[in-house]
Simulated assay, not measured.
Amino acid sequence: MEKDLVKRAHDAFNHGDYQDAITLYQQAAYQYGQSLFDVNIRICEQRLQKPGQLMKRVPKSSDAIPVAQQLAETQELLEYYYRRCQELEYRLNDAG
């Protein structure tokens, strides 16, 4: 069940269930690292405030990369680390 946490969060987001997505992303952030999910959580919060669209906001100096690009990169990294963890888990099981 834990292995599907990020997928469940992503599915909830895609179905417009942003509150559930936030909860799942927060759980994933606790397990895998907060910085990997900050953008996902922020986008969900924005969607809850204005359904159907992202809120416009004044960019900060820390927003060097657009949010959409950062989200894509975060998702890509997350998927990489998830696959890597599974590979290592399989190796441990094979060795034991």
Rank of each mutant, 00 (worst) to 15 (best):
L92M: 09
Q27Y: 03
K56H: 12
K60H: 10
A21R: 00
I41N: 01
L77N: 10
A64N: 06
L88P: 00
L24K: 03
N93C: 07
E87M: 12
C44F: 02
S62D: 12
N93W: 07
E89K: 04
I43Y: 01
E45R: 13
R42L: 02
R83N: 08
D63C: 06
P59H: 12
L5C: 09
L92Y: 07
Y80W: 06
E76C: 09
R57M: 11
A95F: 06
A64T: 08
L77K: 08
P51M: 08
D11Y: 06
L5K: 04
E73M: 11
Y82N: 13
P59T: 05
I22P: 09
L24M: 05
N40A: 13
Q27L: 11
D4A: 05
Q46W: 05
D17Q: 15
I22C: 13
G16C: 12
Q46Y: 06
K7P: 04
D11T: 05
A9R: 01
N40P: 13
S62C: 04
Q27V: 02
L92Q: 10
E79N: 15
G16E: 12
Y82P: 00
D11V: 03
E2R: 00
I65G: 07
I41H: 02
H10N: 11
Y90D: 15
R84Y: 13
S35W: 07
Y80V: 01
E73C: 09
D63G: 08
Q49A: 13
E2P: 02
V67Q: 09
S61L: 15
H10T: 04
R8G: 02
R47Y: 14
Y82L: 11
R8I: 00
P59C: 14
Y32V: 01
